[in-house]
C-alpha cells in the first residue's frame, strides 16, 4: 500500500470517528418516571361447575406503562421486526400482559400451559379469535395493522386479560415495574410525549427536543 493510500484511509477513519462522536453528542434522550397504579392480585376464584379447585392466588404481572413519542413518524417497512413478537399464556395469565408494538408487527400467542387456551379480541383496532389450541400446537400469528389498544382475553379463563398497544411511532418503551423509562435516539423537533397506563388513563405532555439534550419528564398519577 502506498503512503498516499495510507494517509487517505487514515483521514477517512478519523472523519468517521469524528462523525460518530458528534452523533453521540447530538443524541436526544427523554427519561423519567410514570407513577403506576398499585399492583393488583389475581382475583382467583373457583370455577362454579368444575371438579378441580386449582385457584391461582399469585400476583398478576406487575403494573407497567408504555411511554411513546407521538409525531408525524411514518414507520418504514424496515422498522417492523421481521420475527414476530410473543404474548405467551403461562400459568393462566398472559406473559407479558402489556406489549407495545409498531404498526404492522406480527404477534404470536404460544400456549405454555398444560390446558387449552382460546385467545380473542373484540377491540375495534383488531378483532380476532384464535380458537382453542394446546401447548404443542403452533398458534396463528396475528398482524396488528392499525394503531390503538387491543384488549385480549381467553375465552376459557375469564380472568385472563392483556393489552397489545399498537403504535405508529418507532419511539416507544415499556417502563420497568417502578415506572422508569428512557427513550433514546430521538429526533429533534416538537412532539407530544404520551404515557399509556391503562384503558383511558393516557397521560401526555408536549415536548420540544433539541439536538444533544436529555429531557426529564415525569408522569404523576392523575
Amino acid at each position: 500500500m502506498s503512503g498516499r493510500a495510507v494517509r487517505c484511509a487514515s483521514s477517512i477513519l478519523i472523519l468517521a470517528l469524528g462523525l460518530a462522536a458528534g452523533s453521540a453528542r447530538a443524541q436526544v434522550v427523554i427519561e423519567g418516571t410514570v407513577t403506576l397504579p398499585k399492583p393488583s392480585f389475581d382475583r382467583g376464584l373457583n370455577q362454579r361447575y368444575s371438579t378441580t379447585s386449582d385457584v391461582a392466588m399469585a400476583p398478576t404481572n406487575p403494573p407497567a406503562a408504555v411511554v411513546y413519542l407521538e409525531g408525524d413518524f411514518r414507520p418504514k417497512p424496515t422498522d417492523v421486526p421481521k420475527s414476530p413478537a410473543q404474548v405467551a399464556q403461562k400459568n393462566i395469565a398472559f406473559a407479558p400482559d402489556l406489549l407495545p408494538v409498531l404498526v404492522g408487527t406480527a404477534v404470536e400467542f404460544p400456549n405454555m400451559d398444560d390446558t387449552y387456551h382460546n385467545v380473542f379480541s373484540y377491540s375495534k383496532t383488531k378483532r380476532f379469535d384464535l380458537g382453542r389450541y394446546r401447548k404443542d400446537e403452533k398458534s396463528t400469528t396475528v398482524v396488528f395493522d392499525k394503531p390503538g389498544a387491543v384488549t385480549i382475553h381467553c375465552e376459557i379463563h375469564e380472568r385472563m386479560r392483556g393489552t397489545i398497544l399498537v403504535l405508529e411511532t418507532p419511539h416507544f418503551q415499556k417502563t420497568d415495574t417502578a415506572g422508569r423509562y428512557r427513550l433514546e435516539h430521538l429526533p429533534a423537533g416538537n412532539y407530544v410525549l404520551k404515557a399509556w397506563v391503562a384503558g383511558d388513563d393516557i397521560r401526555q405532555r408536549p415536548v420540544e427536543l433539541k439536538t444533544g439534550m436529555t429531557l426529564h419528564v415525569d408522569f404523576p398519577a392523575r
Binding site: 382475583r43 382467583g44 376464584l45 373457583n46 362454579r48 379447585s53 385457584v55 392466588m57
Partner: peptide, 12 residues
C-alpha cells in the same frame, strides 16, 4: 356472588 376465602373455601 362468587367469594373465595383463601384457597380452600369457595362460596357461590
Amino acid at each position: 356472588v362468587d367469594a373465595q376465602i383463601g384457597t380452600k373455601i369457595y362460596v357461590f
